[in-house]
Amino acid sequence: MCAALCSPAEREAFKRDEETFMARFCLTEEEKGLIRKRDFKGLIEHGMNIYAMLKIGSTTGNSLYRMGAQMRGESYEEFLATRNMKDAV
C-alpha cells in the first residue's frame, strides 16, 4: 500500500476515501485500525518499515518529526525542545 503512495494520484485517492483505498491491499483489520488511528508507534511495533510509514505520514499531514514525537510519547513541542537546533526542519 505504501509503495502506491509514491504517486500524487494515489495520495489523492487515499485522502478522498481511505477505506476504499485500504481495501485494495491485503491489510488485516488490525493493520487498518492502526492506520485509521494514525497510531505510528503501533504500526512500527507491528513490524512496519519506517520509510514505508513516511508515505502514510506525508499523505496524512504527519511529518517524520510529528510521528517521532508520538513514538517517544511526547508532544511535538516537547520533542522539538530536546533538539540541538530545532529550526532545522
Binding site: L5, P8, L54, K55
Partner: peptide
C-alpha cells in the same frame, strides 16, 4: 533508496544503475 524505486516484494542487496539518464523519483512527498 527509501522504498521509492525498490519495494519489499523484490529487494536487491546491491543494485547498479546502467542508464544514460536517471529520472527524479517521487518518494511519497512529490
Amino acid at each position: 533508496d527509501h522504498v521509492a524505486e525498490f519495494t519489499f516484494d523484490k529487494y536487491p542487496t546491491f543494485a547498479l544503475g546502467a542508464a544514460d539518464r536517471y529520472p527524479i523519483a517521487d518518494e511519497g512527498f512529490g
